[in-house]
Amino acid sequence: MYRIGELAQLCEVKTDTLRFYEKHGLLSPSSRTDTGYRIYSDIDVERLRFILRAKAVGFTLAEISELLSIELDKSNWACADVKGLVDDKLASVEAKIAELNYFQLSLQRLSQACCGGPESAEHCSILEALESSTDSVRCENHNYTNDDTQSITSALDQSTARPSQGK
């Protein structure tokens, strides 16, 4: 049996984390002492480790709660149900990665189009692109050749083919 501090130390988390999981219904002490201290069992330790592993691979608290409910009643669930949860999470992560890749490419194009010099920002290509209703960017860096300018503008135009949200 473990008190909250002992469990926290054993699993390398803060006691506030355990209280947070308790508040959200993911973890509850097996019992309490007469003075109100939380007491956790070895089963609670395994449950906490399950929660921490699920959190480490990106599951939300709601998703972890669903996984825990399956874990507690495995005989009434199919492996396909669990795989479905994982596949849904994977699709969500892939959509987020695609969105972040879009942001990265767009920001790279904006950055490459700007000279970044000490001149006034009155004609800054980044601000002009963000103010514009078109997707093309006029490069202000005089070190670029016309071919560079065209490839940057073309790449920015292509980057507006924004990935689907997958929701």
Rank of each mutant, 00 (worst) to 15 (best):
I126L: 00
P118T: 11
E6Y: 07
K83R: 14
S132M: 12
T145D: 13
W77F: 15
S65W: 03
S132I: 08
Y21K: 00
A121K: 15
S30Y: 08
L61N: 01
T153H: 03
Y37E: 04
D81K: 10
E99F: 10
G117I: 06
A56T: 06
L68S: 07
S164L: 10
C139K: 03
N146D: 15
A54T: 09
F103K: 08
D147V: 13
R53C: 08
S164W: 03
A95E: 02
Y40D: 01
Q112K: 15
E94C: 05
V86W: 07
R38L: 00
C139G: 09
T35A: 03
D44G: 12
A80Q: 15
L26H: 02
I70E: 08
L127Q: 14
I43Y: 08
S41Q: 10
K74R: 13
R53P: 00
Q104K: 14
T60Q: 02
N143G: 14
F50R: 05
S41F: 15
S133G: 13
A91C: 07
T35L: 02
S106T: 11
S31E: 07
Q158G: 07
S159P: 06
S65T: 05
G36E: 09
Q150L: 15
A54E: 01
D44T: 03
D44R: 03
E119R: 15
Q150H: 13
T35W: 13
L68N: 05
S125E: 05
Q108S: 14
R19I: 01
F20K: 01
I70A: 11
A91V: 08
A62H: 04
L7A: 10
G166S: 03
K89P: 06
E66P: 01
S31V: 10
A113E: 15
H142T: 11
S92K: 08
H142M: 12
G58D: 03
F20V: 01
I51N: 06
S125N: 05
R109P: 01
R162L: 08
Q150G: 02
E66I: 09
F103C: 02
S111Q: 05
I64T: 13
K89C: 06
F59K: 00
G84P: 02
H142G: 09
L85N: 06
S69T: 12
E63L: 04
R38I: 00
N146M: 14
A80H: 08
K89S: 03
L52A: 01
L90S: 05
Q9L: 13
G36Q: 07
Q150C: 09
R162C: 10
F50H: 00
K55Y: 04
D34A: 12
Q165L: 07
D34C: 04
A98W: 02
S31H: 07
I39P: 11
G84K: 08
